[in-house]
């Protein structure tokens, strides 16, 4: 039925595994960094969203809306080549990081907004009446509880970020897992072999991240 003319060549993939694993590390810390910055921005957007200033609120709403309604690939491409037309040249990695962070911030803002509804308003008032400033009440009472509620969505977003860092290759990134894999296939045309191994590495990365997050969540929130 099928005529297999193709002969698999795995040896060179094994030989180049170290380069791919180096790439996996870059993939991982890029995703992690995009999450850390994304969470900070999301918390800022969240308070902007709740502010009475129309301009601040519109920026927050606009950010979330653009992040939700346009593809990450387009955003990254736009950040690299669109902004470049203005003379604002950023590196491939910076464009990738900015694109992923932009999305993380947008999606997390929505998650946090949902989570916030679960933290009763009375708590803020109680904190204020204990003499805390509004900022203190937000950072010491609301956010810790919020983080507990949104921990699971944050984990999901982290895995999304991990997988989406593979888009850096469209703006010339060549040292993350996807970029390194692509560079190796360019030389050898062993597309299937290299990408199959890359897929396994991504899977393991995603599962490790999930496992570590589960453990951390269990340790952190088991009070």
């Amino acid at each position: 039925m099928f005529d297999f003319k193709y002969r698999f060549q795995w040896r060179q993939v094994i030989n180049n595994l170290p380069a791919m694993l180096d790439g996996a590390w870059i993939t991982f810390y890029t995703a992690l960094l995009s999450m850390v910055i994304g969470i900070v921005i999301a918390l800022t957007l969240l308070s902007m969203r709740r502010s009475n200033n129309v301009a601040l609120r519109s920026v927050a709403i606009g950010w979330v809306s653009v992040a939700r309604n346009t593809p990450a690939l387009l955003q990254i491409y736009f950040l690299y080549f669109g902004l470049g037309a203005f003379g604002a040249t950023i590196s491939s990695w910076a464009a990738l990081l900015a694109g992923i962070t932009f999305n993380n911030a947008g999606y997390l803002t929505e998650n946090f907004r949902g989570g916030l509804r679960a933290v009763p308003e009375t708590q803020t008032r109680a904190a204020r009446s204990l003499g805390m400033t509004s900022f203190q009440a937000y950072t010491r009472v609301v956010i810790p509880q919020l983080l507990r509620i949104v921990f699971y969505p944050i984990t999901n977003q982290m895995i999304w970020a991990l997988l989406m860092t593979s888009l850096g290759v469209v703006v010339g990134l060549n040292n993350d897992l996807m970029g390194a894999t692509k560079a190796l296939t360019d030389l050898s045309y062993r597309t299937f072999e290299y990408f199959a191994v890359a897929a396994i590495i991504y899977y393991v990365l995603a599962k490790l991240t999930f496992g570590v997050a589960r453990l951390a969540g269990w340790k952190l929130f088991s009070y």
Partner: peptide, 16 residues
């Protein structure tokens, strides 16, 4: 748990 980009590439080369 695997990037879509890689899924596209893999199926595309697997079918050939």
């Amino acid at each position: 748990s695997v990037p879509l980009l890689i899924q596209f590439v893999l199926l595309n080369s697997a079918k050939s």
